[in-house]
């Protein structure tokens, strides 16, 4: 059982620059105003791309949160 993680947006920080969507289109859509829509938890194969999205967000508004227990 591999541990899962969630991408969480720090909404007051996010300005809708949409870089996360560019880096991780499999997991992140954009709403009509350009803000990210995160579709579900991060599967193992997308974890490197998710880390990159977190690192490269120009507003540092994205975090990868490890689940304590993937029940």
């Amino acid at each position: 059982m591999s541990r899962e993680a969630d991408l969480r947006v720090d909404w007051p920080r996010c300005e809708g620059r949409a870089l996360c969507h560019e880096l991780l289109p499999e997991l992140i859509d954009l709403d009509p105003w350009g803000y990210p829509i995160v579709n579900g938890p991060v599967p193992a194969r997308l974890r490197p791309a998710a880390r990159e999205a977190v690192r490269d967000c120009p507003k540092l508004a994205l975090r990868l949160i490890e689940r304590k227990d993937s029940a």
Binding site: P12, D31, W33
Partner: peptide
């Protein structure tokens, strides 16, 4: 302060 609320609720 949060985009989806700021834009979404008036919409």
């Amino acid at each position: 302060r949060c985009g989806p609320c700021h834009q979404g609720l008036p919409a």
